[in-house]
C-alpha cells in the first residue's frame, strides 16, 4: 500500500491558489467572450441573410467536430507564430494566457451559440409578430422582446456549460501553463508526491463543480415553479 504524506500541500497552497486564479480567469473571460460571440453566431445562424447563416453553421459545426485539445494546440503552437510574423513581435513572446483565453472563447462560442439558438427558437413566434405589430424593427424586437425571454430560460444551461468549461480549463496543461491542475501537478512532481496532489486536485474540482451544479439545479427548479 501507498504511504501517504500530505505535507507538501499546506506549504504550496499560495502557489496552488495562484493556479486557481488562472483557471478562474480563463473560465470567466471565456464565458463572457464565448457568450457574446455565441449570441452573434446564433443571430447569424437564424438570420435571413444566407451567407451569414452558412458562415455561422460552418463555424459551429467545425468547432463542434474538433477536439478541444486540437483547438488548444492550434492556439499554442500555430497561432502565436502567425501573430509574431504578422505583427512583428519578438520571437518567443509569452502569449500563452491570451491564447488560452482566445482558444477557449472561440471553442465555447460554438457550444453557446447552439444553446442560445435553441433558446431563441423556444420563444413563441407570436412574440416577434406582436413586437413587429407595435412598430418595432427586427433588431428592436430581438433586443427588447425575444432575447430577454430567451436568456431567462437559458441561464441554467449557460451556467452548466460554464461548469463544463471550468473543468476543461485543466486542458491548458498541454501548454504547460500553470493553472490549478498544472500547479498541483508541478508540486506533486517536484516533491515526488504526485498521488497526494492528484487526489487533492480531484477532490477540489469535485467539491467546486458539485456545489456549483447543485446551485444551478436549485435555481433551475425555482425558475420552473416561478
Amino acid at each position: 500500500m501507498h504511504d501517504y504524506d500530505w505535507s507538501s500541500i499546506p506549504n504550496s497552497l499560495p502557489f496552488l491558489w495562484d493556479g486557481m486564479k488562472i483557471s478562474l480567469e480563463i473560465t470567466l473571460s471565456a464565458v463572457v467572450f464565448g457568450i457574446i460571440w455565441g449570441t452573434l453566431l446564433a443571430l447569424m445562424r437564424l438570420s435571413p441573410v444566407k451567407p451569414l447563416s452558412w458562415f455561422a453553421a460552418g463555424y459551429v459545426n467545425l468547432f463542434r467536430a474538433v477536439p478541444l485539445v486540437m483547438v488548444l494546440l492550434w492556439f499554442f503552437l500555430i497561432v502565436p507564430r502567425l501573430l509574431e510574423s504578422l505583427l512583428g513581435l519578438p520571437r518567443g513572446t509569452d502569449m500563452r494566457l491570451a491564447s488560452a483565453i482566445a482558444g477557449f472563447a472561440l471553442f465555447e462560442a460554438a457550444y453557446y451559440s447552439e444553446i442560445i439558438r435553441a433558446g431563441i427558437q423556444s420563444v413563441p413566434k407570436g412574440q416577434m409578430g406582436a413586437a413587429s405589430a407595435l412598430g418595432m424593427t427586427y433588431g428592436q424586437a430581438m433586443r427588447l422582446v425575444v432575447l430577454p425571454q430567451a436568456f431567462r430560460n437559458m441561464v441554467p444551461l449557460l451556467l452548466t456549460q460554464g461548469i463544463i468549461l471550468f473543468q476543461d480549463t485543466s486542458l491548458v496543461y498541454v501548454s504547460a501553463l500553470a493553472d490549478f491542475f498544472g500547479a498541483a501537478y508541478k508540486v506533486g512532481d517536484r516533491d515526488g508526491r504526485l498521488v497526494e496532489l492528484l487526489l487533492f486536485a480531484g477532490a477540489v474540482y469535485f467539491v467546486l463543480c458539485f456545489t456549483a451544479s447543485r446551485i444551478v439545479r436549485h435555481y433551475q427548479n425555482r425558475l420552473k415553479t416561478a
Binding site: Q167, D168, C209
Partner: peptide, 22 residues
Amino acid sequence: EVFRNIPLLVQLFLWYFVIPEL
C-alpha cells in the same frame, strides 16, 4: 456525480498515475 464533476484530464491522471499505486 463523481464522474461528472471531476475534469477528464484529472480522471485520466488518477487512473494512470494514482490508481496503480493504490
